[in-house]
Design a protein around this nucleic acid. Structure first.
Lengths: 210, 210
DNA sequence: GCGAAACTTTTACCGAGTCAAACTTTGTGT
DNA sequence: ACACAAAGTTTGACTCGGTAAAAGTTTCGC
């Protein structure tokens, strides 16, 4: 009764099959142009089963959210003593970039993902909802640590803004046709620029005299 | 052919009627429990007409967005010389609070609004989409001023986080049953705390030694 | 008043998502 | 092994948000 009973294995396989079929269709034709019924048929399964595994259609595409959320909260929670949340997340962004992780944004496969995402308001809405869930989760970690409800929410919100802005900046450049390698190289400075703003404040923007 | 032809007046009246009827029903029973067909009938109008005035059901409830957006961008755009965006928006938040404006969050009618909002994921999604539109609009103002695309987006994002976090903090307290007057009084400090974080950075969070 | 333009209604339709009941498959106790 | 329970899947019917097109109806310009 662990996780490799026949039952569990079949479920995982079905889930992955549906997700893959769906993603394939989305990338070919866009999110709204593919119906759930179509996905179900292509996966050899009933419509109801699709909704069994993925409560909303959007979850068929944005199914890596749970992992990302867990990873980010873990980065904050288990940061070294004396390391600020900003520093921890900054380092994590640099690490993602260095390892060529998709969530660094500076990745070749980007355009497909980005195009599908932008092809549907519903999908975008869900994407940003996940962003908020991340902010919320980080806030909880910080609040449980400091007891400061409000400041934790603020800090978490600011940090999340940095993470997502940095991501979408890289993604935007890639989609605009810039060379992935160039973007990736310059992205180091972008990350630092973003986290510097969060870390040191934006009081002197737009003045650059410091 | 200005705005007081019979035609224009009727349109405004109809629009307002629909909006009012809808809001009333939402507050009585929650967003999802009221169908568009029902609203149409209660307003003595056809379903199609409802969608004529409000492209999405959510817009029936969140129909003050355009004003808010315009106001916030105007605050940033027409701030005095030498005044930073942070300072301008901080002052604006204080002004909203002092004048008892609903968007300060510290207002008695809050619970109804908040309850309806939280009664529906779709509505929440739209709410946060509007938040993003605000960030995006502010970013555009800043970018047109400085030419710095990325920093503008970052700064706008951080500022928007402050605005919305401050709002939802006050709203949350009111809904939790705290006295509106108390919340309003303490909200001054909350605003400053939020904007201080944006202005001076969160580098030393959670350490308080400065 | 008359005709065109603007607004509304009607009707028909599509797709996401829910529900309940029938059916099939996997796991378990004996 | 075998039967029974539990978990998962399918079917079909239904609700609701939203769109499209065509046929009214009302207001406007002349």
């Amino acid at each position: 009764m662990a996780d490799h009973g026949l039952r569990e294995r079949k479920k995982r396989a079905t889930r992955e099959l549906i997700s893959n079929v769906a993603t394939g269709l989305f990338i070919q034709r866009g999110f709204e142009e593919v119906t759930v019924a179509e996905i179900a048929e292509a996966a050899g399964v009933s419509k109801m089963t699709v909704f069994n595994y993925f409560p909303r259609k959007e979850d068929l595409f944005l199914d890596r959210h749970a992992d990302r959320l867990a990873e980010l909260t873990e980065v904050v929670r288990s940061r070294g003593a004396g390391v600020s949340p900003v520093a921890a997340l900054r380092a994590h962004q640099h690490a993602l970039l260095a390892s060529g992780h998709p969530l660094s944004g500076a990745i070749t496969g980007g355009p497909g993902f980005w195009w599908v995402l932008n092809s549907s308001p519903a999908l975008m809405a869900r994407w940003y909802e996940q962003e908020r869930e991340i902010a919320s989760a980080i806030a909880e970690v910080l609040a449980s640590e400091t007891g400061e409800e409000f400041r934790s929410r603020m800090v978490a919100g600011l940090l999340t803004t940095a993470i997502t802005t940095v991501f979408s900046h890289a993604m935007g450049r890639i989609v605009a046709g810039e060379d992935a390698e160039v973007v990736r190289r310059e992205q180091v400075a972008v990350i630092d620029q973003a986290f510097d703003l969060v870390e040191r404040g934006v009081g002197d923007f737009p003045d650059r005299s410091r």
